[in-house]
Amino acid sequence: MTEEIIIAGFGGQGVLSMGKILAYSGIMQDQEVSWMPAYGPEMRGGTANVTVIISDERISSPTLTAYDTAIILNQQSMDKFEHSVKPGGVLLYDPNGIIHPPTRTDITIYKIEGAKLAAEMGNTKIFNMIVLGGYMKVKPIVKLENVIKGLKKSLPERYHKLIPLNEDAITMGMKNVIEN
């Protein structure tokens, strides 16, 4: 099994940290992982993206041009990455701020109202965890227990009290992801 993912959106949406949690979860279930961000001025312009690979084998190229899954959180990223999903792959997006929804028919498209749900839960910071939940539902590769383990490992002790909230957000995402 090899899962090649691109996560793309605005800086500040938690794109990079969502990728990191995913990668850490992969480690927790004994898989190989890589996390390669776009860095430098590209980020300063406001967009952020990261390529995450989870695999049972040694990972070759950490940068890619085609992905099994694209998680897309703004219009710029939709324009850039809709056509980079492999045929038969998955595109998961948050419709908030998307003017031109995806049109491809050779891939499966899912929607998650991450921004809206986060606002309803009263904490916009958990937006990325809701989206992560949506991803975990449509691509059950990392197990929830391993995500929680990963969070424990990657978060400083003083943030551990926030883990239950993150777990709720993931569950919320899992429940609310819908096929387009």
Binding site: A23, W35, Y39, T63
Partner: peptide, 10 residues
């Protein structure tokens, strides 16, 4: 290079 410096792996 920047790729290996910036990427995260296990």
């Amino acid at each position: 290079d920047g790729l290996i410096g910036q990427m995260m792996e296990k």
